[in-house]
């Protein structure tokens, strides 16, 4: 076009569209719009209930501005302590278990059957939301924090093993070769060539997972797996919004504090 068009004539310019094929473009746009309309229409809104909701919202908000730490303090304290202990135990056990699973799920280290088994475990753990897993464990072990710990361990393993396996698959093969050339056994190979490359990130991720576990430990109680969640749900069911507010504030402060600490620790590790 450069050589044909003389400079003097006006050349139009429009930004080329993101999707070049016009058919694909229009189908995408119309499809997305249709979906949005259908989805929004399917949301049934009960205006009367919503109007009442605004009133209630005001009451709840008022209650939230005056949190009541006192009247149920012993319940709150017990729940929070339980959540914290669950988090500690689950994170430690989760890290310990996720190391072998992570190695097993790395294609460059593990034989195929082990690889497939570990990957299946990881997929299972990552697919189901923690609360659903908690339901299963509560059925198995009965109500109480043990089911919660198992839930968090299971979720931690899924999270950490996957990232660990990906790290291992991306390690520098030259270092592995160098150690292998010294005649090292598989275990020595792992400790000298693989672990030094992945362990800093593993520790960082483990600490990060601690934060997540603390947050999750606050909800598995809703299905009876221990921790502060049960107390929180009770408070909501009894319309004790000032107590619920106190619990939420405690959770938020705790999560913020651990995040701050873990951020500092992770920064120092690097």
């Amino acid at each position: 076009m450069a050589s044909i068009a003389p400079v003097a004539t006006s050349r139009r310019w429009r930004k080329p569209p993101l999707i070049r094929n016009p058919l694909v473009r229009w189908v995408t746009v119309i499809g997305a719009l249709t979906y949005l309309v259908l989805a929004i229409q399917s949301v049934t809104v009960n205006p009367e209930r919503l109007a009442r909701g605004i009133q209630r919202g005001q009451r709840i908000l008022a209650a939230f501005l005056q949190p009541d730490f006192v009247s149920r303090w012993s319940d709150i304290q017990a729940g929070i302590l339980e959540s914290l202990t669950m988090t500690v135990i689950a994170t430690v056990i989760g890290i310990i278990i996720s190391i072998p699973i992570g190695f097993g799920a790395a294609r460059n280290l593990a034989p195929l059957p082990i690889y497939l088994f570990c990957r299946a475990l990881i997929t299972l753990s990552r697919t189901f939301q923690e609360v659903i897993i908690a339901i299963v464990f509560v059925v198995m072990f009965g109500f109480g924090p043990f089911a919660g710990v198992c839930t968090l361990v299971f979720a931690t393993v899924g999270f950490l093993s996957k990232l660990l396996a990906e790290d291992i698959e991306e390690i520098d093969p030259a270092q592995v070769e160098a150690i292998r050339a010294t005649g090292a056994s598989w275990l020595k190979l792992v400790t000298y060539a693989v672990l030094p490359q992945v362990s800093p990130r593993l520790v960082g991720l483990g600490i990060y997972r601690f934060d997540i576990n603390l947050r999750e430990s606050a909800v598995v109680g809703i299905v009876g797996a221990g921790g502060i969640g049960a107390t929180l749900q009770t408070a909501f069911n009894r319309y004790d919004y000032d107590v619920a507010s106190a619990i939420l504030i405690v959770i938020i402060v705790l999560v913020m504090a651990t995040e701050l600490i873990s951020g500092v620790v992770r920064a120092r590790l690097q």
């Binding site: 909701g53 209630r56 709840i60 929180l232 939420l248 938020i252 999560v255």
Partner: peptide
């Protein structure tokens, strides 16, 4: 927003605007 789990947000919102998709 990050500190509070979606399930807890749900508890809160069900209390305010009632149960349902909204």
């Amino acid at each position: 927003s990050r500190s509070v789990n979606s399930l807890i947000w749900a508890l809160l919102l069900v209390a305010i605007i009632g149960p349902g998709v909204l």
